[in-house]
Simulated assay, not measured.
Amino acid sequence: MRRIITGHNQAGKSVITIDGPPARSIGEDVGGLFEIWNTDGMPIDTTDDLDRADAEIILSPPANGTKFRYFQINPTPEGVPWEVLQDAAAEAFERIGAGHHRIDTSKHPAMHKTETIDYIILLKGDVSLLLDEEEVRLEPFDTVVQRGTNHAWVNHGEEPALLIAVLIDSELKE
């Protein structure tokens, strides 16, 4: 995974300020989150060389902020007891400051709900979006607009699935 981040030099000319892999990643043992870029709602100085993705990985963006990331989902190993999957998911969500987003995991251990609008594209793999009352199977390049609903992702394939997501902090009404 390669990120190319642009900016301006002191003469106001456009330049590449970062060319390399994601600044941070977490949870590679279960697929992982790979941070590309974050905003916090504050003005951005395009002449700085600050890597806005080089910070602690938290699931949701800050107030008025955004998160841009890859996430990868490994297939669920067969024969793992439900309780073990629940414990693993709980630990994973705690590691990214999102334990409180797991409101109803009765349908799947990774079910969660955030106060965000998410734009998600499946790049490769065989994945379903699981909701409280529905499930939809995705094909590569299908796009989901996730509007703050309780959801999880399920990998049906034998290889990791790769998705890209933009999370935007939002005030949602149900």
Score class of each variant (00 low, 15 high):
residue 113 K to W: 07
residue 111 M to S: 05
residue 87 D to S: 13
residue 45 D to K: 06
residue 86 Q to Y: 03
residue 60 S to D: 12
residue 123 L to C: 05
residue 74 N to A: 12
residue 140 P to C: 01
residue 140 P to N: 02
residue 98 A to P: 05
residue 60 S to H: 04
residue 70 Y to S: 06
residue 64 N to A: 14
residue 120 I to A: 07
residue 136 V to E: 09
residue 15 V to C: 08
residue 46 T to P: 11
residue 102 R to L: 07
residue 7 G to I: 02
residue 39 T to C: 04
residue 22 P to N: 09
residue 24 R to I: 01
residue 17 T to C: 06
residue 125 G to Y: 00
residue 39 T to H: 06
residue 10 Q to H: 11
residue 37 W to I: 02
residue 72 Q to A: 11
residue 116 T to Q: 03
residue 9 N to S: 06
residue 100 H to W: 08
residue 43 P to Y: 00
residue 108 H to P: 09
residue 138 L to R: 05
residue 55 A to E: 12
residue 40 D to Y: 08
residue 36 I to L: 14
residue 44 I to E: 06
residue 110 A to I: 00
residue 84 V to I: 14
residue 76 T to L: 10
residue 120 I to Q: 04
residue 68 F to N: 12
residue 109 P to E: 01
residue 73 I to Q: 10
residue 84 V to A: 13
residue 90 A to M: 04
residue 132 D to Q: 14
residue 66 T to E: 03
residue 142 D to N: 14
residue 125 G to M: 04
residue 49 D to G: 13
residue 134 E to H: 12
residue 117 I to L: 13
residue 133 E to Y: 09
residue 66 T to H: 03
residue 140 P to D: 02
residue 58 I to D: 06
residue 96 I to W: 04
residue 122 L to A: 06
residue 33 L to Q: 08
residue 111 M to L: 06
residue 99 G to V: 03
residue 126 D to F: 00
residue 111 M to W: 01
residue 83 E to A: 14
residue 75 P to D: 05
residue 118 D to V: 03
residue 56 E to W: 01
residue 99 G to H: 02
residue 99 G to L: 06
residue 7 G to S: 10
residue 8 H to N: 15
residue 96 I to V: 15
residue 95 R to L: 12
residue 70 Y to L: 14
residue 119 Y to A: 09
residue 17 T to K: 15
residue 116 T to G: 03
residue 64 N to Y: 09
residue 144 V to T: 06
residue 16 I to C: 08
residue 85 L to T: 09
residue 123 L to H: 10
residue 72 Q to Y: 10
residue 36 I to K: 04
residue 82 W to A: 13
residue 138 L to E: 03
residue 61 P to I: 07
residue 118 D to R: 01
residue 115 E to I: 01
residue 73 I to V: 15
residue 123 L to E: 12
residue 11 A to D: 15
residue 71 F to E: 09
residue 82 W to K: 15
residue 20 G to Q: 10
residue 17 T to G: 11
residue 84 V to F: 09
residue 138 L to T: 00
residue 75 P to L: 05
residue 116 T to K: 05
residue 66 T to G: 05
residue 67 K to Q: 13
residue 144 V to R: 01
residue 120 I to G: 07
residue 69 R to K: 10
residue 66 T to W: 01
residue 83 E to D: 15
residue 122 L to M: 03
residue 33 L to P: 01
residue 15 V to E: 12
residue 49 D to C: 08
residue 30 V to D: 11
residue 104 D to W: 10
residue 66 T to P: 00
residue 121 I to L: 02
residue 74 N to L: 11
residue 114 T to R: 03
residue 119 Y to Q: 03
residue 140 P to V: 02
residue 62 P to C: 02
residue 27 G to Y: 09
residue 96 I to G: 07
residue 16 I to V: 15
residue 61 P to E: 09
residue 93 F to W: 11
residue 30 V to L: 13
residue 43 P to T: 01
residue 125 G to S: 02
residue 77 P to L: 03
residue 87 D to H: 09
residue 59 L to W: 08
residue 28 E to L: 08
residue 101 H to R: 13
residue 140 P to L: 00
residue 66 T to N: 10
residue 56 E to C: 02
